[in-house]
Amino acid sequence: MNKKIIELRDVSFVYDSENAPGVKALDEVSLDIYEGEFVGIVGKNGSGKSTLAKLLNALILPSSGKVFVGGMDSADPQYTTDIRKVCSMVFQNPDNQMVATIVEEDTAFGPENLGLAPDKIRRRVDESLKAVGMYDFKDKKPHQLSGGQKQRVAIAGVIAMHPQCIVFDESTAMLDPAGRADLINIMHTLNSEGVTVIFITHYMEEIVGASRIIVMGDGKIIGDGTPREIFSNPKWLEENRLSVPEIVALSTALREGGLDIPPGILSEDELVEALCRLK
């Protein structure tokens, strides 16, 4: 097994707002994430998944319990910057995470904060923009880009800091289907290059390719396993108000209709193969 990159020990988080004092967003969650994993986190609204994401980046600190990122305790202020170097984050709204007025300047923002030398920043900016296919847009202004392009620039800004782990906090939620597919492709490429990916989303279809899925409900982890394990129980998913990917729903319906199809089918190809085997 690989090294642990993220470790949560009995973490609770309580939001104290005027309207709803003492709402527990996370309730004694313990979780280990290992290097090189592609973890999909799903759950309905208010299940605590975005709170979880912000904890991993030391943007918020647990009310009780401990969060370790790369072995560093997030509650210790001396590690805050180092934690953010190890584990970076791409947010939901593509409009609100660009800092600079020009694409390449925005990509340079992270490395600039790390205090790297200008020629090193230049190299990282160029390679990051190329990695997300936005190099030709490096002199463009943010409002000249589409949502998907902006989100790709946001990813470039994050990978320019060379993090070991990237959290995508519903980063696809505001994009069109093409933009979404692009983003997920980039995530898989990054993952294959050794970056740990934690992808928080509403859409089950998007995490079929994950190596592990965590299902959140009411501030707790209610499911944790491979996509095959999670999707093999569509009833349970529906009870928790989570949609099932179309292919999974179709193969379940076919099986219930009397066809001899094995459970846990995830992709079109697998279903086609199963159907062809039928006599």
Binding site: L59, R84, M89, V99, E112, G115, A117, P118, G157, V158
Partner: peptide, 27 residues
């Protein structure tokens, strides 16, 4: 204000700590 809040969060996540120790792409 919502945007400002989001942006501040995104800047912090990218290790922004103010001008100290910060370098620039262009000099």
């Amino acid at each position: 204000f919502q945007r400002a809040n989001d942006l501040a969060m995104a800047m912090e996540a990218r290790c922004y700590k103010g001008g100290e120790g910060r370098t620039r792409l262009r000099i």
